[in-house]
Amino acid sequence: MDTIVCIKQVPDTEELSHIRVNCETNTLVRESVKAIINPFDENAIEEALRLREAKGGRVTVISMGPPQAKEALRKALALGADQAILVSDSSFAGSDTLATSYTLAMGIKKIGKFDLLLLGKQAIDGDTAQVGPGLAEWLRIPQITYARKIEVNGNQIRAERTLEDAFEVVEVTLPCLATVTKEINIPRYPSLKGLLSAKRKEVLVWGADDLFLDRKRIGLEGSPTQVIKIFTPQPPPKGEILTGEIPELADRLIEKLRERKIL
């Protein structure tokens, strides 16, 4: 049972107040914000580790991003992943979800055979949930999105998909791709032995020249999505609290609503 997990390094949302956007380049200012593994991807790593514990095999973790993303991959190694690969090249800059899924798919093809490809349901920064499905299309394998439970029997996978107010049970033949939700498991902490040994493990770095890429499909050129504007929304205005006796309050409230032309 060989599993590949795609992870993304994202800004820590617990430090949301430090996150700024650059209005000129329409990008996130990533400096000075603590970077973490996308939380849903931590669930994907955990699921892969549990499957390995039950069925054997290998867990390979892959990420596309700047050189700093090595840190996220090293954490995955500390958690117990067997191998970590960073797909990184300056020519990948500006990739949208289509170009990203294409580039990652080429990286995954280079890794070789696998049974299951796992991702978090979406990244907490972009929130698009498009890279998983995109990858499945590039790799021409079936996909299960929003999986909250996974069972592997032989070459079959049975999964529960979270829907709005129900869940769906699907069965698919391996190899396939699944994106997972928070409900699927509680991610473990790395052990100290894992943490210390990950320091000595190597994170492979693959650039554009290492992958068999169609150069027109990568980076800005391969990205049909254009970000027109990105901005920090204004906080909603503060509410007003009226105090006093109820009859008087009612009058004042009606007055205020009329002022705003709500009544």
Partner: peptide, 20 residues
């Protein structure tokens, strides 16, 4: 259980006996 999972009980135990 958490302390155990993290290997914290083995901090000062020599490596040849399973510690850190």
């Amino acid at each position: 259980k958490k302390l155990a999972e993290l290997d914290l009980f083995g901090i000062t135990v020599p490596r040849e006996y399973g510690g850190l």
